[in-house]
Simulated assay, not measured.
Amino acid sequence: MKRLLITGAAGALGRAMRVRLASSAETLRLSDISDLGAAGPNEELMQCDLGDADAVHRLVEGCDGILHLGGISVEDKFSKILNANLLGLYNLYEAARAHGHPRILFASSNHTVGFYRQDQHIDVTAPMRPDGLYGVSKCFGEALARMYFEKFGQETALVRIGSCMEKPSNHRMLSSWMSYSDFKLLIDCVFRAPMLGCPIIWGVSNNDARWWDNSHATYLGWKPQDNAESYRAELDATLGRPDPTAPLSLYQGGNFIMDPIFPEK
């Protein structure tokens, strides 16, 4: 790619991918509403509120790929989720439509299906069961991306990220964890695929205890290498065995199912 846009580049996952994707495009255009620090040798920095349509159009112009990590990533007030995850995503897709349909990897979430139990194994045909307003916003995002694909041919990989971090931090993540390295491999596969379409992909490493079936997406050639099982003994030693009746042990969304609806006042 000549220019890859990474939204949400100041977040934890954005910072991790900023380093790992440095050689994936001639130029990385990095964006966030927060401070991005100093630009690297092949980086462009553009501060942007996703709710500002004109700013998003300027952000997308000249890009031939978009890694969309931006937005609210936890449960929050609906007004914040509305601006960043709904209006902001609409602005992004309208900008992509206006600027040549750059391929998009949309960071969706396992919280689109958070109310499934951990003893249920599902594929992408399973109905959505969001566990909060954040999860609902990702359901909206997947539907919006599908409509832009069907109506305008805008290709998007809808990646339902499990728990993408350096290593699992609790026992639930023995199933949901995706390593930074495996995410980088997935990003490479998405942007080099001759034909992408608009697939839903479970963002999860090759964990023994995973709940999600990715067999429909084998055409992308993604073969995650890491396995959270190697951290089980460490988690047992540091955290002890989890309470089997707690939401963290029962539901795929873990404690997100317990989050309240935050009042606007």
Rank of each mutant, 00 (worst) to 15 (best):
S230P: 01
W211T: 08
L21K: 02
D76N: 12
G132A: 11
V124L: 09
K80Q: 13
V190E: 03
Q118T: 09
C139I: 14
L50K: 00
G153R: 04
E166N: 14
M173N: 11
P260C: 10
D49N: 15
S31H: 01
R97T: 07
H101F: 06
C63N: 08
D123L: 10
V124D: 09
P41Y: 04
H99S: 07
I104F: 00
T112E: 07
L87R: 11
A246S: 13
I122K: 02
T218Q: 15
R117V: 00
G40T: 05
V19G: 11
S175I: 03
H99P: 02
L45H: 08
W222L: 03
L105F: 00
L50I: 05
T125V: 06
A157N: 05
K223G: 02
Y90K: 08
I72M: 14
I66C: 06
N170M: 12
L144P: 01
F78W: 14
S181A: 14
N42H: 10
S109N: 05
V56H: 01
I187C: 15
P127C: 08
S175M: 15
D76T: 04
D131V: 06
W212I: 09
G8L: 08
E234F: 15
L5V: 11
Q154V: 07
D236I: 06
F152N: 05
A53F: 06
K167H: 15
A246R: 10
P260V: 09
I33H: 04
D54Y: 00
S108V: 00
R210K: 15
F183C: 14
D213Y: 05
M173G: 02
W202R: 00
F78S: 03
H171Q: 13
A233R: 10
G203W: 01
N85V: 02
A209G: 05
R129Q: 12
R210D: 10
L67H: 00
D64N: 11
K80N: 14
Y148I: 06
M147R: 11
P194Y: 04
V204R: 00
M1C: 12
Y134P: 03
N110T: 05
A193D: 07
H68R: 08
I257M: 09
N227T: 06
L4H: 02
G253E: 04
L5C: 12
D208A: 15
S176R: 03
G14Q: 01
A96R: 01
M1G: 13
N170W: 11
L4N: 04
C139L: 14
D236H: 07
G114W: 06
A126V: 11
L67G: 05
A217V: 15
P247V: 12
N91T: 06
I104L: 06
I201K: 01
Y219M: 10
Y180L: 13
A9D: 03
R172W: 02
K151E: 14
H171V: 03
S181M: 13
S23C: 10
H121N: 09
G141F: 09
Y148N: 01
M147V: 10
V159P: 00
Q252W: 01
D131N: 06
P244N: 05
H121V: 08
V19L: 14
A38K: 15
E264Q: 10
G197T: 09
L82P: 00
